[in-house]
Amino acid sequence: MKDMNPQDIAGEYREYTLTYYDGTSRKVLVTDIETPYPDGKLIVSTTDLQGIITHANQAFIDMSGYTREELIGQPHYILRCPEMPKAAFRDMWETIQAGKTWHGYVKNLRKDGGYYLVYATVLPNFKDGKIVGYTSVRRKPSRRKMEEALQAYARMREEETA
């Protein structure tokens, strides 16, 4: 995946290099600008077994800042924010690969370097008893629960980087 482009970024940014589960890495550019999550907006995406995006609804496009063409065919980690602990996604993948539904609070990185906060459900899609892909729905989180999750993530990150 290509590095993030400084021309896409709104405002002052920090630079990080993220290495993803598949061994690839890219430079991400991060600001502290939050895009507030509108009431009623529901992001829908689906992926294949590897987490490659196969469907994105309009809400996903609106909130992530990417076009549909930029999202389809890309790994879902295109949204990974450096402040999210690896353990959160490890837990997610273990849960969905075991055939169960995962719920969690996620901070997501936008194309413009800003972020948006969601409560997410991710679950496996079955066909003839086999997992064939995953579906995710994301919506506006409770402010209080989101704050708690972000504090917990900050502690987890400290442990991971220590």
Binding site: T46, H55, T121, L123, N125, K127, T135
Partner: peptide, 11 residues
């Protein structure tokens, strides 16, 4: 149709 069924499960 399958996609919509999966989406309802996710809701």
């Amino acid at each position: 149709a399958e996609f919509m069924m999966n989406l309802i499960e996710a809701l």
